[in-house]
């Protein structure tokens, strides 16, 4: 069953090419990468770094 589900998720080369070549996908990639990049760049550990969260980064 798990094997069958994994097969169902697997993309063919044709499907992959269609996705990667689409404007829809390019738009997603552009937006999503910017969101993640910003999250990575402004990373601090909220679970330990309370002082820094208070001192700076109040730009939002």
């Amino acid at each position: 069953e798990a094997q069958r589900e994994a097969e169902a998720r697997r993309l063919t080369d044709t499907q992959l090419g269609g996705i990667v070549g689409s404007a829809r996908f390019s738009g997603f990639l552009d937006r999503a990468s910017r969101v993640v990049e910003r999250a990575l760049d402004t990373d601090y550990d909220v679970t330990v770094d309370y002082a820094r969260a208070q001192a700076g980064d109040a730009s939002d």
């Binding site: 997603f28 990639l29 999503a32 990468s33 993640v36 999250a39 990575l40 990373d43």
Partner: peptide, 29 residues
């Protein structure tokens, strides 16, 4: 939904998504 962030003891999982696709980044802080 547009973004999911999971913080664990060892990792951080970030998922940016729209209706069709997901971008997943796994990070070790």
């Amino acid at each position: 939904l547009s973004f999911v962030r999971i913080r664990t003891k060892r990792h951080e999982v970030m998922v940016a998504l729209d209706q069709d696709y997901l971008l997943v980044v796994i990070q070790t802080p």
